[in-house]
Structure formats: C-alpha cells, structure tokens
Amino acid sequence: MIKILLFAHLQEKAGSDQLTIDKEQTTIRDLKNILKETYQLIELDQVMTAVNEEYVMDDEIAKAGDTVAFIPPVSGG
C-alpha cells in the first residue's frame, strides 16, 4: 500500500487529505495518471511530488510503505 497526501485545493477537490493505493510499486507518473482518472485531479499535472518528505521527479518509483505527497505551488512566507 502506498499512502498519498493531498494539500490545498487538491485536498478540497478530492474531498480528503489522504488516500491509499494498493500497489507494490509505481512510478510517480503512473500514480498521477491513476489519480487523475479516479478523482479527476487534473491539477496533478502542475504539482510537485515528495516521496517520504523529499522532492522527486515524475520518473521516480514509489513502493509499498512509502508516503507520496502532492505539493501544489507553495505560498508560504
């Protein structure tokens, strides 16, 4: 199982701040595609991704037990 964290407008659109995907492993790109289909989260094309709290590229692989966070453009400060 891969744990997914959603923030800001993604969270509101999905209606949840957390999802789980039952997969052994997947690239971030495939994961985004799954979520885009299942939850209509087209905004995923424009977000960064962190696996276990570190930014990664779309071709990186997430494995069961990892936490994948989708990070919309940030606006702190």
Binding site: Y55, V74, S75, G76
Partner: peptide
C-alpha cells in the same frame, strides 16, 4: 521559503476565497 517549503495560503476575501499558489 517561497520556492520549496510546503506551506499554502488560502486568502479569504470579502467576496470569496482562493488558495494562493506560485
């Protein structure tokens, strides 16, 4: 901070609200 720290601001205006990005 404005580039890499995962914090998001939601502005509540008199006439609505928006998540601010980028």
């Amino acid at each position: 901070i404005k580039q890499i720290v995962p914090i998001w601001k939601k502005e509540h205006w008199e006439d609505g609200e928006t998540w601010i990005g980028d």
